[in-house]
């Protein structure tokens, strides 16, 4: 196998309704259309060597930071690879960054996520009070229906930070003066995973806070927890350091072929 590439991609807008399986089919087809020299597994029914890293943003949740790894049979320039794959994917599935894999496991670097939760129509004052109650608690037991049935777990400890972000306001000028609250949270990846909807459940439990319309959730970033900022760092930086190249640098000299 010539090379392994690490890809950061986004799912945006109406494509947030794609499931993980939908994305995986779309990527396989895009790879074929883009004529990327993807490696195939050996065996009875060969599959393209594409693996999805970390836990996928759920169906209905947008993301600016999903990751996959793809093996190619000849060396590719990450910048050109990014452009080719991005052009081939439907708009809304957008390739943001491609680096050549350095050592180590990317999955191990995805320690936490930043989530943004827009709550159209929610009252900022009530939301603020609920957030404070949430943060003041040591432990908040929530229930979620999983494949293994109803699970009960703590939604508090994994939440490293939870704030009402700027931009939350009563927007003047709009009909019926719709207010909108934007929550921003950094959540540590744990088992079972604590997801933004678990945090919303927590807010309901501690303060009886319930948004009037479906929340719009976006994963903004994921990566290793940077203790100075309390937020994730770019997980691909380590690969860039190791391979001294990548998307942001000049095209690698050893690149051959179209990509």
């Amino acid at each position: 196998m010539a090379q392994r590439l690490r890809v950061r991609y986004a799912k945006r807008g109406r494509l947030r309704f794609t499931s993980h399986r939908d994305i995986s089919r779309a990527v396989e087809r895009a790879v074929r259309r883009a004529d990327v020299p993807v490696a195939f597994s050996a065996g009875f029914s060969p599959h393209p060597r594409i693996s999805y890293v970390g836990s996928a943003a759920p169906t209905g949740v947008a993301s600016e930071a999903e990751y996959l790894e793809i093996s190619v049979t000849r060396e590719c320039d990450p910048g050109r690879f990014r452009a080719a794959l991005d052009a081939s994917l439907p708009p809304g599935l957008d390739v943001l960054d491609v680096v050549e894999a350095g050592g180590g496991s990317l999955a191990d670097r995805l320690e936490c996520s930043v989530w943004q939760v827009r709550l159209p129509g929610a009252d900022p004052a009530l939301a603020g009070a609920a957030v404070e109650r949430f943060k003041a608690a040591d432990r908040i037991e929530v229930e979620r229906l999983t494949k293994k049935g109803i699970r009960r777990f703590d939604a508090r400890e994994a939440v490293l930070s939870l704030d009402i972000a700027e931009g939350s306001e009563t927007t003047a000028g709009q009909a019926s003066s719709q207010s909108c609250v934007i929550l921003r949270m950094v959540v540590r990846h744990a088992v079972p995973a604590v997801r933004p909807d678990d945090v919303l459940t927590g807010l309901r439990l501690v303060a009886d806070f319930a948004p009037p319309s479906p929340p719009e959730v976006t994963r903004l970033a994921q990566g290793p927890l940077d203790s100075r900022t309390g937020a994730p760092a770019d997980p691909l930086d380590l690969d860039r350091d190791m391979t001294r190249g990548g998307d942001t640098g000049p095209a690698s000299e050893h690149a051959v072929g179209d990509l």
Binding site: R14, L15, F17, T18, S19, D22, R29, T59, G60, P90, P91, G92, S213, P214
Partner: peptide, 23 residues
């Protein structure tokens, strides 16, 4: 009708089938 439909999609099975945008 999409803005009005969009608000309903989080509440249905396989919402992707209603959003269009096929290649």
């Amino acid at each position: 009708l999409f803005p009005r439909l969009e608000a309903l999609l989080p509440r249905v099975q396989k919402p992707i089938q209603y959003v269009g945008g096929e290649l």
